[in-house]
């Protein structure tokens, strides 16, 4: 029996992943225990990461999702902590949420996964900046643990509704409490943030001007004041620090 290990591995894979081939085992009922355990493991790992999504879907639909995810061709051979992200890959590939009348699913999974990632992310050294020293002609260097999310459903609130224009959310770790916090920002500030991240060598003001030009808006004191307030809040939250341009 030169391939007994591979044959055995394959038998268990077919049983656990697809519920097939129980008759090849000496006791079909007992063999079913393995599949139940694997489904329960997938369920637990995903439930721990996505409690809001699970609650919103309800037990029946959630378990349908888990079982179809298990049977899919999505690679799950990843480090244990990255496993829940495989469910997002499944949703991206299958659009399971649309097919099952829960179009918010991708946003919900992305939101909860981001929260989990930010909570568990490796610690980083950070620079403490003086927010009173911040000027728009300076550069901004990002730091800290945070992600900018673009969402079409308000999955970060109690009531999940579709919004015509996307909502932008900064999910960040408060390094004092080590808790994850959400900060909803305007689309313009989200674009400013993305541009600043893309062009760290440019001053805040030059990026701001460039963005405003695209919108045919001239920079004025009020806009500068609003942007400076936003940048100060970013720095205060420990997500960036200012440097001389």
């Amino acid at each position: 029996m030169p391939n007994s290990l591979k044959n055995s591995n394959t038998r268990f894979l077919n049983l656990c992943k697809f519920g097939k081939g129980a008759a090849q085992f000496d006791n079909m009922e007992v063999a079913g225990i393995y599949r139940t355990m694997v489904i329960e493991n997938y369920n637990k790992l995903c439930s721990d990461c996505y409690p809001l999504t699970k609650n919103k879907l309800g037990e029946t639909l959630w378990m349908k999702l888990i079982i179809e995810f298990l049977a899919s061709s999505i690679s799950t051979n990843v480090p244990l902590q990255e496993f829940p992200a495989c469910l997002i890959e499944f949703e991206k590939e299958q659009a399971w949420g649309f097919a099952n009348h829960c179009p918010f699913l991708l946003d919900a999974l992305r939101f909860e996964w981001t929260q989990s990632q930010v909570f568990h992310a490796l610690d980083l050294d950070s620079v403490v900046a003086d927010i009173n020293s911040i000027q728009l002609d300076q550069q901004l260097t990002f730091q800290g643990i945070w992600e900018l999310l673009e969402l079409n459903y308000t999955v970060f609130q109690a009531n999940w509704v579709y919004t015509q224009t996307p909502t932008y959310l900064i999910v960040y770790r408060n390094e004092q409490t080590l808790d994850v916090e959400n900060w909803s920002i305007t689309p313009f500030m989200a674009h400013l943030l993305s541009s600043l991240a893309q062009h760290p060598q440019h001053s805040i003001k030059s990026i701001l001007k460039s963005l405003l030009q695209q919108l045919n808006i001239s920079i004025n004191v009020e806009i500068e004041h609003t942007c400076l307030g936003f940048i100060k809040e970013i720095v205060q939250k420990g997500l960036a620090y200012n440097t001389l341009a």
Binding site: S8, N9, M37, N41
Partner: peptide, 26 residues
């Protein structure tokens, strides 16, 4: 035990056959 098969992780401690060729591989 085994718990992964190619690109699939099953997160369960699944048993092995008690065979000579399994020993060789192990």
């Amino acid at each position: 035990c085994f718990s992964e098969y190619d690109n699939v992780h099953l997160f369960e401690l699944l048993p092995l056959p008690f065979t000579k060729d399994a020993i060789n591989l192990l």
